[in-house]
Simulated scan of single mutants.
Amino acid sequence: MDDEDPVALEKIAVGIAQETAALALAVRDRVVGDRSVADMDTKSSATDVVTAGDRECEAHVRERLATLRPADAVLGEEEGGAPDPAPGQVRWVVDPIDGTVNYTHGLPWFSVSLGVEVDGRTLAGAVVEPVSGRVWSAAAGHGARLDDRPLRASALDRLELAVIGTGLAYDRARRERQAALLGRIAGSVGDVRRQGCASLDLCSVAAGWIDGFYEHGLKHWDWSAGALIAEEAGAVVRRPGSGPGDGCGPEATVAAGPQLAAALTDLLRGAGAAQL
């Protein structure tokens, strides 16, 4: 088997993500269900909750990869890892539980997200929803799927009718700036959604459930798999650092159907997105 075959990597990513999704639910039943303070600590702020679920789920992913793909590098939200893999080395980008606040509060909109990259190019990705069991996945050049059904991004070309997703930072000062930006653009779009899980927001763009999405400050593991899934579904995707001249700011992630992407970028630029 070709070690860089996107279809084979997608299959492995889906299998590990499904196992990890089951573990995430089991840990929540055991630990988070009673909101046990002893099993929670914090990262960047008091609202950025790290649970036993995050740690156990990432450990499981790393154990499985050590068995199945021992030569690969791993970058994970909880344990860090390979920010600069060797040239040509396969790297797995792991968000063990994306949407941690939803997870700890009993909301069903969270996921396990695994992206697979080589030399900065994403080859495969899987995003699994533990509660519903839905599986979103893609292999570069082979399209994107939801439970094996092909996905296609929205063909809408009218910004004033578009449903746009976004996210807000844990840092309060940045969140206030993001809310102000949202206020400036809200009157120019059809409606807005804030669901609290970037990987699933990007998957929602892939499915056409929302017409576009933007957020500032996402980490690599937040968008690695979801960005590929949206792109393989035909969306135009701007990753952080990929468009410094577009006026959206270096930390912006933007994804939208192909008929809407330019208009959404223009709207964000005109509303001062570069200042976030």
Rank of each mutant, 00 (worst) to 15 (best):
M1T: 12
E4F: 13
V7K: 14
E10F: 03
E10I: 04
K11N: 13
K11Q: 14
G15T: 11
I16P: 03
I16E: 05
A17T: 02
Q18W: 01
E19W: 04
L23W: 11
L25R: 13
L25D: 08
A26C: 07
V27L: 10
R30C: 01
G33C: 06
D34K: 13
R35L: 14
M40A: 13
D41V: 10
T42R: 15
K43C: 03
S44G: 14
D48Q: 13
T51C: 08
A52N: 07
G53Q: 05
G53S: 12
H60F: 14
V61E: 02
R62S: 11
R64S: 09
R64N: 09
L65D: 02
A66D: 12
T67N: 09
R69C: 10
R69S: 08
A71T: 11
A71H: 11
E78A: 07
G80D: 06
D84S: 12
G88M: 07
W92D: 00
V94F: 06
T100Q: 11
Y103G: 11
G106E: 03
V112E: 07
S113M: 02
L114K: 08
L114Q: 04
V116N: 06
E117G: 03
T122E: 09
G125R: 03
V128M: 05
V128T: 07
W136K: 09
A138L: 10
A140M: 11
G141W: 12
G141H: 13
G143E: 05
G143A: 09
D148Y: 05
L151A: 09
A153E: 01
D157C: 08
G167P: 02
L168T: 12
L168G: 05
Y170F: 15
D171M: 07
D171V: 13
E176L: 13
I185P: 07
G190M: 09
D191T: 07
V192L: 15
R193E: 15
R194I: 15
C197F: 07
C197P: 09
A198M: 12
D201V: 03
A206M: 07
A207G: 15
W209Q: 15
W209E: 15
W209I: 14
D211I: 05
G212C: 04
Y214W: 11
E215L: 14
G217C: 01
G217Y: 01
H220F: 06
W221N: 11
W221E: 13
D222R: 10
W223D: 04
L228V: 08
I229W: 02
E232I: 08
V237M: 03
V237P: 06
R239C: 04
G245R: 07
D246C: 01
G249A: 03
P250D: 14
A252G: 00
V254Y: 02
A262S: 11
A263S: 13
L264W: 02
G270A: 12
G272Y: 09
G272W: 10
Q275F: 10
